[in-house]
Design a protein around this nucleic acid. Structure first.
Lengths: 350, 350
DNA sequence: CTGAAAGCGCTTACAG
DNA sequence: CTGAAAGCGCTTACAG
């Protein structure tokens, strides 16, 4: 009964390439070629196939195509979290770039957990991704061997060099904070505090912290341990709390360096709450230049991370790599200092 | 020469289930069952297969599995944009929930373009997704027939009812703004302005706008056309600009209702710039309760959208639907009024 | 330029 | 509980 062809089925059998071939009166092989390499098929025949596709509403089964061709046209990306706008923006640009080139994006977030990252990469590989986009340059030790074993083209992002040999597209985090720190030194600051989200594995933040330390060391400033507060997540709440302990530890601090904007905005808000005037009593800087940075009170001095450009280039380069083209191994984008109103000259001890 | 087995190959042939079967001295069928339905395989044999898997480092080819089983274990989601934290958070929770259940996420953003959305859904369907997550309830007219034709379980989010018959998981947008508007009416406001990001197709914002209008109408307040500014994107910049035109059109306005937080924060910032004291001269409210809302100056009164919960439930329900279980057709989550300091009693004309 | 056939790596009735 | 075989929907040498 269920086989009675006069009864409409809930899910009509999906039309397949064989149906198209039959309707166009060509072989399966020719139908396939007409779709994938139209230039090698005679015009009249190609037309017939195209008409049949149209008429039957054929949509190719990419899993089958992938299985036989070895190309899935899927790219996998894994970011620490989408809650950080810097990654959300990058992913958005990445997806746009991939879609424009006929690729679809498999996305996962690791929540800064290398093991979770590894698991997700495994899943991606099982799904036969053609390429992979990572963030940063520190991974579970099993990650890179796994990727190499599968021979999947991979790029990493938000850093501009990779000790792991992956093509990198991003900024020089250490150099950027070095520049930022020098800027504060030039404003006369000598008493620094740092809020760094380095409690969780995060090589970008570590590099930023190193850049700050280097600039201070060059200026002859040694940083006591209690001047650096490590927080786990780049959240406003953590920044707020960190400012408290920093000022408790050392009330002489006149400048607070943060490894990202969310934390800096939290610090700003807490400083205001306890009656510190910014930038008169205290200068605070962030990193990332996410939208919130321009809207805080006062607007935050920070470093711009070109997330859209990173995502855009990651898509472009990765697809090139998949197609066997050569791509640059280190792509360093500008990370400009954005001076707003959260920084000023150091309060002079009269 | 290239075939000389003593020469290490760049990409050793991937180990397949047949290799595992051979190593475990069982048939391909048994190896498959030992992995997928371990309970129906004798213990000793299952152990042998597991050992072989371990030894050879076998990872299943999910594309092949999908092709023969009809199950890809991939879910596709499409959101308007990740630049809006409300969607970034929802996607993050969705991905976590899917990963916990063995599913991988295919993600795309539509940038509020129904045609782009349709294209992406087509791509997802070609990739053989097992399920689909949408946002809202207004689509390209070809979208739903396409999904039905493929018989793919689908849920929609950020709304709690769907005229299209899709199971919906979200909030009642109109009811929430109705409540918010009533709150402002109770504070004595009679002169309203609205900034609505309804210039692009966005049924959530339209419902929010409708809720505001309804509450005002019930209070006997008719809204002149120039009291409503439509903006295209939920961005701070648009909000800033909109406030200007609103106050130019009608300087008597004492309360500004916005359909989202980013726009409200922009309005707040512009109001401050032109010297309006908030909430003394002007009350401003947003919608979404994203992180930025708590950090603006003053902190924004808004409506909380439980994005994490939406994403979490979408994952749970969609997987249930894929597994053939029944799921609720309307899941309405609470959208609480969050009263902060951007709202106060209406300025009395003495 | 076109077609017949093998094969991609699995799963799953069908027998036993 | 296990195995031999067909089949999922394509692509791609191999012949012609």
């Amino acid at each position: 009964m269920a086989k009675d062809p006069t009864i409409a089925r809930a899910f009509p059998a999906r039309v397949k390439l064989a149906d198209v071939a039959r309707a166009a009166k060509v072989s399966l092989a020719t139908a396939s070629r007409a779709l994938n390499q139209p230039e090698i098929v005679r015009d009249t025949i190609r037309k017939r196939v195209e008409d049949a596709v149209q008429m039957l509403g054929y949509t190719p089964d990419r899993m089958a195509r992938a299985l036989s061709s070895g190309r899935s046209h899927i790219v996998g990306a894994i970011v620490p979290t989408l809650a950080n706008a810097i990654f959300a923006d990058g992913v958005e640009a990445l997806q746009d770039g991939l879609a424009a080139r006929g690729y679809t994006l498999l996305l996962a977030n690791s929540r800064y957990d290398p093991h979770k990252e590894l698991q997700q990469i495994r899943a991606f590989l099982e799904h036969g991704v053609d390429g992979l986009v990572l963030v940063g340059d520190s991974f579970d030790p099993r990650l890179l061997p796994l990727i190499r074993q599968h021979g999947v083209p991979t790029v990493t992002t938000y850093v501009c060099t990779s000790k792991n040999g992956l093509p990198a597209i991003g900024i020089d985090n250490g150099q950027a904070t070095h520049k930022m720190t020098r800027y504060l030194l030039e404003l006369g600051h000598r008493e620094f505090g740092i809020i760094a989200n380095t409690a969780l594995p995060n090589d970008r933040s570590k590099a930023r912290l190193d850049g700050m330390r280097l600039a201070l060391a060059e200026a002859g400033i040694a940083l006591a341990a209690d001047r650096v507060v490590e927080v786990a997540m780049p959240s406003v709440a953590y920044g707020r709390r960190a400012l408290g302990s920093l000022l408790t530890a050392c009330s002489a601090i006149t400048a607070i360096l943060c490894t990202n904007d969310a934390v800096a905005v939290g610090a700003l808000s807490e400083a205001r709450r306890i009656g510190r005037s910014i930038p008169r009593d205290l200068s605070i800087v962030g990193f990332d230049n996410i939208e919130i940075a321009a809207e805080s009170d006062p607007p935050l001095t920070t470093v711009d991370v070109p997330a859209n450009e990173i995502g855009r280039l990651a898509a472009e380069f990765l697809v090139h790599a998949i197609e066997g083209r050569h791509i640059p191994s280190e792509t360093k984008l500008a990370a400009s200092l954005i001076v707003r109103e959260s920084t000023g000259r150091a309060l002079q001890l009269a």
